[in-house]
């Protein structure tokens, strides 16, 4: 059986190989359907006709490659996405976090930061924010720049306010923001313990021992083999008794170290590392 289903499939594989060789970013373990879709949007955006043309140019043009990273990753996010998930974090995880003098939290694949600030608001209400160091990382530098600025358009504001209430937080979302003309700006109080930095889950290593890791809606872009590798990275980074929170469509079911975890709330994908043996 031929290795590639058709010419287009071959072109995509070749492009990803070349990008890896030239730039060291490895998209070869990403799920193909979404990636292919994004690559075709990128071609349109750049007015490049064919993938082989993109392949030729991307090894010679760093700026084009930067735009590639920016456009092929899916950065859609929101404040308090899945409000009941945050309610569950509050119910199941916060109490144990309170037992630590200091907590380290990692948001892997934080996109434009909405999720990071959402959790920071919850931590604030639980009196944990001052004890926390929060690492917020992503492969895409341009979304990190936006996350750092913490300026958001107010077009989704009422939805976010609703999510905030549904998540069970006190007061109003706007208690944490300054209102601008058509945007809102995150209060500096929320940001002071957050470090935004580039980190590629596929090629970079562990950088600290965490009590809580959020990696939501990132693993869906990876094949099972790559998911396994990345969950392995999280497992290495997690303190004994630490928590791993995934997106609603992500699970540990196929991870070969599944036995190291206990599901704290399986529906909301909250897991605790309760053993060091897989």
């Amino acid at each position: 059986m031929p290795k590639y289903q058709n010419d287009e499939d071959y072109d995509i594989h070749a492009l990803l190989e070349v990008i890896y060789l030239k730039w060291g970013y490895d998209f070869r373990g990403y799920s193909k359907a979404s990636l292919t879709r994004r690559i075709f949007f990128f071609l349109q955006e750049e007015r490049i006709d064919r993938i082989p043309d993109l392949q030729y140019r991307i090894v010679r043009d760093r700026a084009l490659f930067s735009r590639f990273i920016k456009d092929v990753t899916v950065n859609v996010t929101e404040m308090f996405r899945d409000p009941s998930f945050y309610a569950s974090v509050k119910q199941h995880i916060i109490a144990q976090l309170k037992t630590y003098p200091h907590i380290k939290i990692w948001h892997a694949g934080c996109a434009t930061g909405e999720e990071v600030y959402s959790l920071a608001m919850l931590l604030d209400q639980e009196g944990l924010l001052d004890r926390a160091t929060i690492y917020a990382t992503d492969i895409n530098r341009s979304v990190l720049d936006r996350a750092k600025k913490g300026i958001y358009s107010d077009s989704h504001l009422s939805q976010y306010q609703q999510n905030y209430r549904d998540a069970g937080l006190k007061g109003d979302l706007l208690d944490y923001f300054e209102k601008g003309y058509d945007h809102v700006i995150v209060d500096s109080r929320l940001r002071k313990n957050i470090v935004f930095t580039e980190h590629d889950l596929v090629i970079d290593h562990v950088f600290g021992e965490m009590q809580l890791i959020f990696c939501r809606n990132v693993l869906i872009y990876f094949t099972r083999a790559l998911q396994d590798k990345v969950i392995g990275l999280f497992t290495e980074s997690l303190d004994f008794g630490g928590y791993l929170c995934l997106g609603i469509k992500e699970s540990l079911d196929f991870f070969n170290g599944r036995a190291m975890y206990t599901a704290v709330d399986a529906d909301h994908r909250l897991f605790q590392k309760t053993s060091t043996k897989g």
Partner: peptide, 19 residues
């Protein structure tokens, strides 16, 4: 699943995106 696009992969698996 509500709120996720559902995609078909060439290897006959299903995948998701929140695009």
């Amino acid at each position: 699943t509500p709120n996720y696009h559902l995609l078909v992969e060439q290897d006959g698996t299903l995948s998701h995106t929140i695009d």
